[in-house]
Amino acid sequence: MPTLADVQSAAHRHVFETMGTTVSLAFAGPAPERAGGVVERVFAILDRRFSLYRADSEATAVARGELAIADASPSYRNSYALAKRWSAETRGAFTAHRPDGSIDLCGVIKAQAIRESATALVRLGARAWCLNAGGDVLTSGVQADGRPWVIGIVDPDDRHALVSQFTCATALPAVATSGTAERGEHVWRTASAPDFRQVTVAAPDIMTADVLATAILAGGRETLEHAVSRWPIEVLAATTSGGYVATAAFRG
């Protein structure tokens, strides 16, 4: 069983704190000078607007009922519409609302920040990188030595070890994982008895990976079946009874 210390290091890396978590950006080669700063700014802008732990954020104003969604900024309304669309797509397993009815868009904001960062990086000419925001990973291109990016999956039984890995490809460059004790409290179960305690999804884009990992964790096997039929994804799910459910890419 590999341990944490075994993980390969990348030569060019930019690490910063945001959204209550850590972002790690690794480049396959020399990074464009402004790349790290640009990505930090993308996260900071979304964090200011959508963080519920900031008393002065737009999201807090909406959650408190001080600001109607119709009167919110276009950016806020777009993200809200995005979350609602994913809720419908996952038949309610993913939700933009907390159990008390207040709106929480955390489920899409991190993925949105990763996505916007990717756009910014490509604009700067960076084509080969691996962006990890709190365990949600988007890759572009390949590593410096030509090998594809390989993402380790944390073992839910031992967070200092890996249970599996996923080799990113052009078709599936994004990997996200949700767990039962996930912070942000945007995971609420719809199934009566929980089926899974950790769900990893590899997808064509980070939003799909992130949302579906959350949705499958919340909705259980029914959502898993729906998801693998609806989207071209690979899934590794740790069951609450100690087993795993896996699509082909995660089976040895």
């Binding site: 075994d6 990016w149 990997v175």
Partner: peptide, 16 residues
Amino acid sequence: VLAANSAQVSSVSGAT
């Protein structure tokens, strides 16, 4: 489950 080959892992996905 496909085992992790630590020598190849470049980043880690897990719940926060």
